[in-house]
Design a binder for these strands. Sequence first.
DNA 1: CGCTCCGTGACAGAAAAATAACATTTGCAG
DNA 2: CTGCAAATGTTATTTTTCTGTCACGGAGCG
Lengths: 296, 296
Amino acid sequence: MSEGFASYPTVSFSELAEKIDAALPGLPTQEARLAQFMLLNIDKLALETGRTLAAKVGVSEVTVGRLLRRLGCDGMRGLKAMMREQYSLSAGARPMAGGEAPAMNDRLERVLGAEIDALHSIFQQAGSNAFRELAKRLAEAQGVYVTGFQSVRGIAEDCARRLAIARPNVRYLSAHDSMLAEWLLPSGEGGDRPEDTCLLLIDVVPYARESQDLARIARDQGRRCVVVTDEYCHWAKDVADAVLHAPSRSGLFLESTVGIVSALNLVVDGVAGLQDDGGRQRIDQWKLMARDVRLF
Amino acid sequence: MSEGFASYPTVSFSELAEKIDAALPGLPTQEARLAQFMLLNIDKLALETGRTLAAKVGVSEVTVGRLLRRLGCDGMRGLKAMMREQYSLSAGARPMAGGEAPAMNDRLERVLGAEIDALHSIFQQAGSNAFRELAKRLAEAQGVYVTGFQSVRGIAEDCARRLAIARPNVRYLSAHDSMLAEWLLPSGEGGDRPEDTCLLLIDVVPYARESQDLARIARDQGRRCVVVTDEYCHWAKDVADAVLHAPSRSGLFLESTVGIVSALNLVVDGVAGLQDDGGRQRIDQWKLMARDVRLF
DNA sequence: CGCTCCGTGACAGAAAAATAACATTTGCAG
DNA sequence: CTGCAAATGTTATTTTTCTGTCACGGAGCG
């Protein structure tokens, strides 16, 4: 990584990179985060200011200065000076990785294109009525059940966890394990009325028979049902109150789940946005809890 | 990299380049020199100021200002703003700042942009040595353990399922539930030697203490360890044989998991590609099984 | 001459960065 | 659990740097 004849007396920029690398293990937490971020984005740091950098990493401006000084360069000023020197216009070096990437192979390029198209499609749907309807159902229901099988089961579980941060009373429904005990009609006063609950069903090809069965059961019990699925799903619209279709063809070994995941992220976000305070209270609470449990 | 999908209205930077190009012939001498210079060094302009630029080209500062304004962007300020937009690293204005609630569409556009940037970053890494190393480790190990906690636990489980299609002997490791019984050193003949196994660790902020502990245990036992994480993780590179960093900032209610998922998709694909037959045999077999199961 | 191009210098406003003093949190040893 | 020291954030203030603007003058040219 060292430059052949960079005989400048000043600490050069690549040296700085190495220095960051070396210093990283011994750094305090926040500074380490910052350092890591800088290291990863070292070639795109050019047009960041101290402030924006701090904001992006989530540390304070002062910390940026402190770290830089600890690393031997005179704050932001010095950093920019170094970079200027390194990438001085007369030199042939190419600073910005954003511009031209080292050729990635054709296949990956195509896959990337497909993924991006999928995202476009999903974000487009995020402005649609179907999406609003879906988010509204999930936000207004008394209780929400989330489920998904096979290759998206984990995604469904994660979605349930995240949705539970955005709104109360969310459960992952494991049709296999629990035999739907959750859905025995409430005999007494406890529990929500079925009409006030909503099922979020996540399903992709090859479709699980369970999904359709579950959807029908839900409907028969008067529950609401919304579906997030792939572009091939043919049955969802017959049983669901709202459907989102996330493209999954990408050309990889297995179908991509990026679309589904993105759609679900948006759904969670949308539901959070429909809470009274934009979900702010709940997420703050959650952060506190997470800290108390000493998860991190 | 192709500008193929410039379907969103970023007043982009490449547009400026074209504009310069078009305007060049009709420009006065000095401005033409300046324009020419900018065109040639367009990707290195980032850390120049109006003054340095003027100095390097040999024109006055005022001329720089004039030219820029003539080209339609508000002087140096505007230029930098453009570049920032173009090369912004996971920009996304404060998502939960409560204060400003930008129009849904605007916000979604930004989120989409961030997601796309994340994908670019990941696909770029997919051509890197780190990625090859990571895939190789996962492909060549006798046995693979996959794990992830909290908000990516489900993703990790899914990844284990999918990886198990790409190659044999993959298990999800649930450190909590099983108390690591899987990792008791094999007393007799059964089981793989630790050196022949590889741990795939998936972790995002807020990082789970367990992840780091687990990584260390793995290393102490002589196991291989590879990590897929977000852009902030500062501990991974100290304990892992290979690390992939997936940007997660998107501006949504919760951090985006799209990047991680995409990275894992690529990993599975990469591992499949390293199988003798590109994993074809295994996937065919799986499809058959899946179809059979679907019938009942 | 009148016009455009271009440079100079002075100045003001804005943004960025450094600095210092102080409050809070966190990590950790005792 | 206590309490100290390090780490981090806050706030306010100052300094530096960057930019844009204005007024002016000189040079070249039809």
